[in-house]
């Protein structure tokens, strides 16, 4: 079709201009963060600010990992975040798909009660249960342990909901064929259902990983020693120190952001799907 330059053309141009401008605003703090992470602190707060460092100061990254007290505790905190986030991502996928499969494909007694029960816990915000959870964890001696960090997040009601919705459409013929071939029920779940649920599994794993990578409140409650802290509480402590070098702080921030952005760029489809899940729940 031939483009006419008229009102529609101007509207088109305007729409593109707005979107490009907004994209710039969205990306701007990233450029700031990346640039500032390679500057001495005095340059980060220089007037006027120059976006590109004169000479990239890579030692900021060395200092960021080493920490202001030279204890390298940030490395340990990064490792903790990885341990917690990957464990939670794995367990939430396994548990949610198992429960979702049970709810979607079996007609057992009490199924509706179980389903309604789990769905109703979706409405309970973490903030409402965190104090009793904290007390229980203290009683069980889970303070300052990985178990304490991980256990409350082993799976989520939302994950169960997502997997159930996805598996409702799983072809019954495939399951029956496997049964006729003498496949046991657990094996059917492992080899056929789980392996063919990749889109939902990937979406859920990313949601769970990000949730823990971002989690500040619970680790703040449950851990005391620096050894067991995760990235978010380290960043808060670093930012709270007004004498800390701003350039190094931005290097700390870049290091924290990097893993999630590697995930984002390699699996953007599942990220955007994860967001879209909410509107898709009606079908």
């Amino acid at each position: 079709m031939k483009r006419k330059f008229g009102i529609a053309g101007i509207g088109d141009l305007l729409a593109t201009a707005i979107l490009v401008a907004v994209s710039c605003v969205a990306i701007m703090p990233f450029l700031f963060m990346a640039g500032a992470s390679l500057m001495p602190g005095s340059d980060v707060t220089a007037i006027p600010y120059r976006w590109i460092p004169d000479k990239p100061l890579w030692s900021n990254y060395y200092r960021a990992l080493k920490g202001s007290d030279g204890s390298w505790i940030y490395l340990r905190n990064i490792l903790n975040s990885f341990i917690v986030a990957t464990t939670v991502a794995t367990s939430s996928v396994l548990l949610a798909s198992s429960v979702g499969y049970g709810l979607a494909k079996f007609k057992f007694k009490g199924r509706n009660i179980v389903f309604m029960g789990i769905m109703s816990t979706m409405m309970i915000p973490f903030e409402a249960v965190m104090i009793p959870l904290y007390l229980t964890a203290v009683k069980l001696g889970l303070q300052d342990t990985y178990a304490g960090l991980i256990l409350p997040f082993l799976t989520s009601a939302f994950g169960v909901f997502l997997m159930r919705q996805y598996l409702l459409g799983f072809p019954e013929e495939l399951l029956d064929a496997a049964r006729i071939d003498g496949c046991s029920e657990p094996a059917i779940f492992r080899r056929i259902v789980f392996k063919n649920a990749t889109p939902a599994v990937a979406t859920l794993a990313i949601l769970a990983f990000r949730g823990q990578w971002d989690n500040l409140l619970w680790p703040l409650l449950i851990t005391h020693s620096e050894r067991l802290k995760t990235i978010p509480s380290y960043i808060v402590r670093y930012t709270a120190d007004l004498t800390a070098d701003e350039g190094t702080l931005m290097a700390v921030a870049v290091i924290a952001a990097l893993p999630v952005f590697v995930l984002f760029f390699s699996m953007s489809k599942y990220f955007l799907q994860g967001a879209g899940v909410y509107t898709g729940s009606k079908t």
Binding site: L95, A96, S98, V99, Y101, G102, L103, K105, F106, K107, F108, R111, V114, I118, T155, V160, E185, F189
Partner: peptide, 8 residues
């Protein structure tokens, strides 16, 4: 079905 949902 119960076996699958019990852990949850």
């Amino acid at each position: 079905g119960w076996a699958f949902v019990a852990p949850g």
